[in-house]
Structure formats: C-alpha cells, structure tokens
Design a binder for these strands. Sequence first.
DNA 1: CATAGTTTCATACGTCTGTTTGAAATGCAA
DNA 2: TTGCATTTCAAACAGACGTATGAAACTATG
Lengths: 222, 222
Amino acid sequence: MATDHTRSAILTAAERLYADRGFADVTLRDIVAAAGVNLAAVNYHFGSKDELIAELFVTRSLATNRERLNELKAAEEAGGGRADIGVVLRALVGPTLRGCLGPDKQRSDAARFMIRASIESVPPIRKIKNREVDHLRKFAAAMKRALPDRDEVDLYWGLHFALAMAHQTIRDTERLTKLSDGKCDLNDVDAITDRVVAVAALALTTATGRAAKTARITRAVG
Amino acid sequence: MATDHTRSAILTAAERLYADRGFADVTLRDIVAAAGVNLAAVNYHFGSKDELIAELFVTRSLATNRERLNELKAAEEAGGGRADIGVVLRALVGPTLRGCLGPDKQRSDAARFMIRASIESVPPIRKIKNREVDHLRKFAAAMKRALPDRDEVDLYWGLHFALAMAHQTIRDTERLTKLSDGKCDLNDVDAITDRVVAVAALALTTATGRAAKTARITRAVG
DNA sequence: CATAGTTTCATACGTCTGTTTGAAATGCAA
DNA sequence: TTGCATTTCAAACAGACGTATGAAACTATG
C-alpha cells in the first residue's frame, strides 16, 4: 500500500479526463497515458473500468452531499431550526455552482466530473445514483420547514426547478454566452447563484393561485 | 428510389432506438436488426453512421423550430406584433414538452430523440447544433418586444432558465417522481407547461431590484 | 426477353476496446 | 543476502465496432 502513488495518479487523471471530454470519449489507454502508468494498472488496482468510475463517483458524490448538508445545517442551526427558503436553496445549488463555474483557477475537476456524471448516464453510475433522492429529501424537508404553509407539490417543483437552472447553467455555458454575445457573465458565480436562488425563491413565495392563473390566461390567449 | 422502404425503415428504427437507449448504447447492428434490413444498407443509403445521425437531427431540428416559430408568429400577429411574455415562453417550451411528456401514446420518438441529442453531445450533432442559437435569437427578440423596458441580460437569463426547467423536467422525470412519491404528476403536460412558463414569466416580470436584493439578503444571512 | 442500373446480401477487413497473462521488477522481512 | 509478496510491465487476447467488397437479387427500360 504505502502511499499508493499509482492508484491516486489514475484517479486524478481519470477525473480530469472524464470532466474534460466525457465518458464516451475517454479510453483506459488515455487515462493510463495521462497518469503515466501501465495499462494493466487500472485492472490491477480497481478491478475494471466500471469500478474505477464507480469509485470516482461515490467519492465525489459523498463529498458534494456533505458540503451541501453542512451549509444547510449551519444555516438552520443559526436560525433556530429553520432557515430562510433562499438560504436552503443556496445550500442546495451553491456548492455545485461554485465548483463548476467561475474563473478557471477555482474550477475543480471534481465538480465538473460530477456534472458529466449527471449528464451522461453511464451504467456503473446509474445504479448508484438512485441514492441521490434520499439526499434531496433532506432539502425538501428543510424547505418544508422554511415554508410550512406551502403545498408540498409546489416545494418539490421548486427544488426541481432550482436544480434544473443551476445544472443547465453549468452544462450549457456556451449557448448562453453566444446567445447573449457575452453579456451574461458566467464568471461571476455569486451573481449566478443569486439569480438561480432568487428565481426559485420567488416562484416558491409567490401566491400559487396568481402564478397559475397568469399561466392559464397566457395559455388561453396564445 | 420509389418509396425507398429501406431508407425510411432505418430512419424510424434508428430514431426510436436512439431515443430509448441513447447514442452510446446503440450500434449499427442494433439499428439494422430493428429495421429488418441488412447491415450494409446504412452505409449504402447514408454513407456513414454519422451522416445518418446528422440527417436525423437536422430533420427533427427543423421541424421543432418550425413548430415553435409558428406558435410564436401566430401569437404575435394576434397581438398586433407583440405577444405577452407568457405566450412567448409557451411557444418556446411548449412544443418540446408536449412531445416528450404526457401519456405514452402521444409521446413521440422524435421529441425524445431531440432530447437525447441535446443531452449526449455526439460529434456529428455538435457541429450542427450551433445554429440553434440563431433560432433562439428570434425568441429573445420576441421577449424584448414583450418586455421592452426589461434589461437585456435579464431576458437572456429568463430564456435560459425557461429552457433549463423544461429540459430538465423532460430529462429527469424519474428523480422528480421518486422524490415526490408520485405526487408530482408528470403526465399533465399542460400543467407542467403552466408551471415552467409561470416561473419564468414571474422571474421576468418581477422587479429585478427586489429579486436581487432578496437574494443578496439570503446570501448574507446564510 | 434481354440488359443496364439499382439495391440487397453474406462476409470479411482493420481498428479499437477492456481485459488477461506471465514474466520482470520492486519492496521488505528474516 | 535470501526469500516471499506485491507491484509493474510489455504483449497478447477476445470481442465489438464501423466500414468495404463483390456477388447475387431485384427493377425497369428498350
């Protein structure tokens, strides 16, 4: 064992390559070349390519979830067991956004790997991913504490939309930049987080009747 | 030429398989087996696998864009050159949502194929996809007409978020269903469209100062 | 019917993939 | 140093992939 240099070199190289180019385009030979180790090392240390991916994913998954929950717990403890809905949402989308966007320097391979994992549904990950729901349930519960009068279904949709906006912003940076001719600043992570949280919170705090009615009217007009 | 049964059989089978299982998991041999034709037929009729995918994508892409623009134009003409922001957004997200969600019967392979295409970034599609921005620009312009006083950047973000919510809802149906224990009805397409449009419109019509301030406050509190 | 052109077919090719193998190298205790 | 276990390495393996080939089966025109 010792420091197991080879093992961690593989993990680092694999994470970076997968984050950069996705799962489909990266072969074991690419990984071992980047890691500077022999081809057989992957199978020796991890058993198979799938097990390497799975280990990468569970490690990062646990870390991200821990970060999110820490932020949530700190906020709820500070608020006496209940946090503002905006703070809850920020704890949900903040960690991932910070990891994936912003200046190159602070952009981590880890966060970008997680995005890849959530985009490209590769078999070894798909099986593990179902546990994510249990993690999100904690946030749904916190949202319920923040907005006890709100209909449960609305809360789920709000959580879903918040993740959708954060997720898509990370994934499709290019399109928004082109569409806006660079006017949308994708480097200001705090501002982006503000936007996502603001929209989700707004949707959750506005009277559902009014929103639904507006939508129905526009539908009738259209 | 005649009816070119083989050609269209390949297209149909390929679209369905790609929609169901994604690009990575579907081989030419899967396609020709499903289409009931010979392996060499793909290369004979389309030149290569990539060209088959490209043809599939441009066909569907043009159809979707046409549908969206028809809805937009009809609304703007009815409104004397300017449509309500909700109607514009509905024209943007409605066609795709209708095609991808709802009861199995009305769910089309075409729409699901397009979602796959937007998720898994396969080389032959990636090159073509840049044109989508030009299409979206027309919606950005319509949004500007609907909300002439709104800051341009806000409009781009609103458009981006609307697409994000629609897109993610289609893509991650399973997670939301599980999280909500089935309480979120993914079969009621109109209701879902209402929600997406309502949230996006709400974000676009609420005073930006208030939203930003709320976000900043929650950030400070957290 | 004959024939030229098109389409289908079985089959094979070359390449790339993840994985395996057995020998060589290394680390470490006695 | 000797001996044993761990780790590395070059090389090869079997399988799957997209593609190419040439003969066979069609279709339609004269």
